[in-house]
């Protein structure tokens, strides 16, 4: 495939002095790849992707995103965050701003884009997620699925190279999960590099290049979905799959 856009080399992270949350993580993601990370709660999957845009700091190892190494350097962090967009489980839309204002905020204040151009970009992204008619509503007036699609559009306004999804559908009613997954599948089809932490195995089967299983801070297994679901190699993976695919 293409060049590596995310590189984790022997990355270790601790919370406090005792909790060793990421242990010797080695990961290489090529541009345009779609990765799904799954595992039990507390396994470190959210921590891993939050290390990618420096929402969490790692103590050991190297992380290189789009050619920039992540460190304490403020300029480096800013550069990385321009290339990485994130979608949260709790949407985290700004409730006191309209949908359109939520989307134009960052391009205007960070990207130094004039308002008219920012609104144009915003409307384009809203159309992309098929929610353009809600542009002047407030987030709390929308359903959960609609809010999450707005959150995806907001992240896309800065034209990132990488999109991170931290359990994007876990807080949604079952009826709304489909509309969000459809947007994510479309995004994948357009060549975006995506890292998703999710329990939606259907999505993994449809779109992922690789599925990664994490447990207790380590990558236990990573393989293409066909191999992962039908011929899991590790006992732990088999155990986990039987639990989540059982019901």
């Amino acid at each position: 495939m293409s060049a590596a856009i995310i590189q984790f080399e022997k990355v270790n992270k601790w919370y406090g002095d005792d909790f060793h949350v990421l242990r010797d993580i080695d990961l290489v993601v090529a541009a345009g790849e779609r990765i799904v990370i799954c595992g039990p709660s507390g396994s470190g999957k959210s921590t891993l992707i939050r290390c990618i845009n420096r929402l969490e700091e790692h103590q050991e190892g190297r992380i290189v995103i789009a050619g920039t190494e992540l460190s304490d350097d403020v300029k480096a962090i800013e550069r990385v965050r321009r290339e990485v967009g994130m979608v949260f489980q709790q949407f985290n839309l700004f409730p006191h701003l309209t949908v359109l204002e939520n989307l134009t905020l960052a391009p205007m204040w960070v990207g130094k884009t004039p308002k008219a151009k920012a609104e144009e970009i915003a409307m384009h992204q809203l159309e992309r997620v098929r929610i353009a008619e809600q542009a002047n509503k407030y987030p709390l007036q929308l359903s959960g699925g609609q809010q999450q699609r707005v959150a995806i559009a907001r992240a896309l306004c800065l034209t990132p190279k990488i999109m991170l999804f931290d359990e994007p559908t876990s807080a949604l009613d079952p009826e709304m999960i489909t509309e969000v997954l459809e947007v994510m599948i479309e995004l994948a089809g357009q060549g975006m590099t995506m890292i998703c932490v999710t329990h939606e195995m259907g999505f993994a089967k449809a779109v992922a290049n690789r599925v990664i299983f994490m447990d207790q801070g380590q990558i236990v297994e990573e393989s293409p979905p066909e191999e992962f679901f039908n011929r899991p190699k590790s006992e732990r993976t088999k155990d986990f799959l039987s639990k989540i695919l059982g019901h």
């Binding site: 929402l55 967009g85 994130m86 709790q90 985290n92 204040w109 960070v110 800065l158």
Partner: peptide, 25 residues
């Protein structure tokens, strides 16, 4: 806290985050 994280992911600085996102709420 998610509001501040979201603002950070969008690249807003500390004072921009406080002024536009945190303080109004």
């Amino acid at each position: 806290k998610g509001q501040i994280e979201a603002a950070a992911t969008l690249g807003l600085t500390y004072w921009q985050t406080q002024r536009k996102i945190v303080l109004p709420q």
